[in-house]
Design a protein around this nucleic acid. Structure first.
Lengths: 341, 341
DNA sequence: CTGAAAGCGCTTACAG
DNA sequence: CTGAAAGCGCTTACAG
């Protein structure tokens, strides 16, 4: 038998059942201050008997009340990464007594715009967005004063609290380490150049060359790979060159896994006497047991979610009323022999 | 400068700006039927000028209106799995014009109860739950008629639409294949025995032995491993036996990855002349390149999310008013030499 | 085609 | 300590 959609009891139902006014019920529900203990008792009994649950939508309609909702727009790359990100944000959001309304943009600017409009219509108190890059619907005028935190990526011209990973610094450090270890021809496998993190990681790559006085060979830079298959093909094309790179920097783990697959599918003779060293921005499971020298630039996606949510909650609770801030989360290096030559 | 939290325009603000009544604005907002074209024009102009956005909370307060919210409670195992699950559900839910309210229970029954109470207070139209196993707060009386879909796991005594993976059948098939290939001592690495999927996968394991007339050695059954570290330790203890198993069935990918790590960390001499064959329930990346014979029982977590959401939406839209249904999603086998001996 | 009235479920003053 | 009145932003009849 399908569950009957019977009418939910309201505050009036409870009031009548308990023989008091709606106000008394309301008072009991919000703590029971200034109510005779006997009535508190009676109201609680009625609430239990009727299975009453306060309608939060009606409650939040009153001025000064908050919806208790945070809108979160993520990009849904084919990457387990964002699951962790959501969980971290949820920790903080639910800890503040609020709920997380979530939607995916699939890197589509129109979807992002519609999703944010929908969130605002639903009276979210704040927004956490992994932005596609479009600017207009993130401007204060479009948001109608709803606080915004950007995560993973910044958007030029949008002044908002932002949590980033130390993309440039970490990439710079690891590429510099490769150069210091003697590598002179270093490949780059990256995502679409329009992606903020991709640009930043390439910037670190480029700066490391510049500061070492090493000329960067643009022929070894392959971008636009968004999945493992295309990354594998890109790596194979690098390996097939007359003078292949001795190390490859992978700007995300999709590219790193593609690179690993290409290396494992290429005979040792073909890929040279020495193994090609890899650096992967983003961790991936089993990286340490592949027998391929790889250095991982790791960061905690869950912590990214926590930080973004914390910044937002601080704004909502008035704990932070200063200028928009940008926080860069540090990375951690896991070395499985990647910088050797 | 922090974004000013100015008062949002209401339908009345728009009405005054356009020089019409609130009703006319309301009509225009809901399609513009029976309104003079000129007024439709004027209202749209005012909406744009004021940046007005309809308050969905107020709208849904009216009887007969729906909140447009679906509550989703997941368990947040340390597994990328659930990110995919959420994304699949979101596809369907947002496709129906609704939004996904999400929370994590961390396998905690109390958190689940509170989360569901919160969802109901927020007037969700329906619930998708990966249940911890507690029964009471999932009964129709507790839900007040809000439709429920269980995902991944069933709960004894709770009659609700349920989407499962074909745990028993797939496990049975793969263990039977191991036995047919000549394996006589097969290990089992599993999660907590309280977990529904763990029980089901063990049941398939047991039935395969029974039907083959092969006695199951309880000593080779190790359960309770919830992460890679403990799984690795469990596998090591299996390998250290005098008469180690020739194959091991892993009830989820955490256990499989632990097993892989144990095998790769054990010298070939110690682990015998032939490699230990593995079966993993759940896929994991790079399984095919490890040089370890492994058979994967794969299923699409995103599809699980889609199915759960579809069943719920069908109930909400009245497309399905029959008895609660249970759907078992099929699995796919990826064979990287796991059944060989 | 248009609007004044009533009410969804709740809470904030205000009055006792 | 308790309650009648008013109103949050919207939409559903009802009347013109």
């Amino acid at each position: 038998m399908a569950a009957p959609t019977r009418r939910q009891p309201t505050i009036l139902t409870v009031a009548e059942h308990a023989g008091v006014s709606r106000m008394t019920v309301s008072r009991v529900l919000s703590g029971g201050k200034n109510v005779r203990p006997e009535l508190v008792e009676r109201v609680h009994a009625s609430v239990a008997a009727l299975g009453y649950r306060r309608n939060e939508q009606a409650r939040s309609l009153r001025p000064g009340q908050r919806s208790g909702l945070i809108g979160m727009a993520i990009t849904n790359v084919a990457n387990p990464y964002y699951g962790e990100f959501v969980l971290g944000a949820d920790e903080v959001v639910s800890g503040s007594g609020r709920g997380l309304l979530i939607g995916s943009t699939s890197e589509d600017e129109d979807k992002e715009r519609l999703l944010i409009a929908d969130f605002i219509g639903r009276q979210v108190e704040g927004l956490i967005v992994v932005p596609t890059g479009a600017r207009r619907h993130l401007l204060p005028a479009a948001l109608g004063g709803v606080p915004l935190v950007l995560a993973s990526r910044a958007v030029a011209g949008v002044r908002a609290d932002t949590v980033l990973v130390a993309d440039v610094q970490a990439s710079y450090d690891q590429v510099s380490a490769l150069i210091a270890a003697g590598h002179r021809r270093i490949g780059f496998l990256g995502t679409m150049t329009s992606v903020f993190t991709g640009q930043r990681r390439y910037e670190g790559f480029r700066l490391a060359h510049e500061d070492a006085g090493l000329e960067l060979d643009e022929d070894l830079v392959l971008v636009g790979q968004q999945d493992v298959e295309s990354a594998k093909a890109a790596m194979e094309s690098l390996l097939a060159r007359e003078d292949p790179p001795t190390a490859v920097f992978c700007a995300n783990n999709r590219n790193a896994i593609g690179a690993v697959r290409a290396l494992l599918g290429t005979s040792r003779r073909k890929r040279g006497a020495r193994p090609t060293a890899l650096v992967s921005f983003d961790n991936f499971e089993l990286a340490d047991v592949l027998g391929i020298p790889v250095t991982i630039i790791d960061h905690d996606a869950r912590d990214l979610g926590r930080q973004a949510a914390s910044m937002l909650i601080a704004r909502l609770d008035g704990a932070d009323e200063g200028l928009p801030q940008t926080v860069e989360l540090p990375t951690r290096t896991l070395d499985y022999g990647g910088t050797q030559i």
